[in-house]
Amino acid sequence: MKHFPQMIGFSALVLSGCTFDEGLREADLTGKIRIPVEALTSLELVDPDGTPLLQDGFTVDEEGNPVMDATEQYGLIGPVYLGGFPSVEDGHYAYPHPEMGPILDPDRPGNTYPYGGTTVGRFDYACYEQLRCKVVTGRYDSFQSIIDFFSDVVQEPIIAPDGTEVLSGATYQEHCFSTEYVTSDDELSFVDEDPNEDVSPYFKPYFKLNSEGTHYVADVTVPHSLFVEDMELWGWVDMPSKSYSYTTCDADAGSSYYRYTEQFMEGSSYPDLLNFPGIYIDEGDWVAEPVMLSDSDDKFTIDFNFHYEG
């Protein structure tokens, strides 16, 4: 009690720090992204001979007959790249594109100088060389779902280093645990059995088909983005090609994997996607209609409605 006045003063000083406005211009921008279901129903996959594997939202057999509804095969949705830009303009490309700075390299367009950005799902190494640049976080809730996706949808079953086909989730998990030196699924980013866990303000990168069946919807936060009044949010979805490959992933980048006789790079996305999106957007991708933000607290909804057909 002797020091009670000092304690009160000290507490007041500490508490005042909790409300002190640092005047930072960066803010977390929160909202939803929506991708039309046509992104999957219009997607086509073919085998190396050109025989259709996926069309009109279904996997098909050799005769072209539909086999399995693929509209909730989220492995077919690649990473979604979302950035904040000073403005988005028409006329530079066949789709809306952020304004660009001066051209410094004749072989590259101008830099968009984004204010900030994020992804909904990112490429992650999923323990097998075959899966480099093919697995995106936030698309699978179990090891078995990955096995089934590559077996039944992409029709390229996962083959282990010893040449055997990976059939069970337990086998897959054990392989990951031993090669990645982890002891829990929580240490692996590409599989998550609790996609709806609340981790606000930074949401898990999960899509869910809305009740109307019209859009895939995900919550998103663009963390620590410079906020400038009337800035525009824009982005695109990297959809897989017919041979199930993605243009925004570099198989020769990322961490090095070196175990016994296996030596390769694990693959990673290119580092300048939001700076030079025009280099990476290609046929089949879905591009966003830009959304203007007047206040950093505005909860936005951004639709990726523009299908770039090349």
Partner: peptide
Amino acid sequence: FYTDSKGELIEIQY
């Protein structure tokens, strides 16, 4: 230095 359409000054390394 490059000034974008929102008046933000961006340093460019030439």
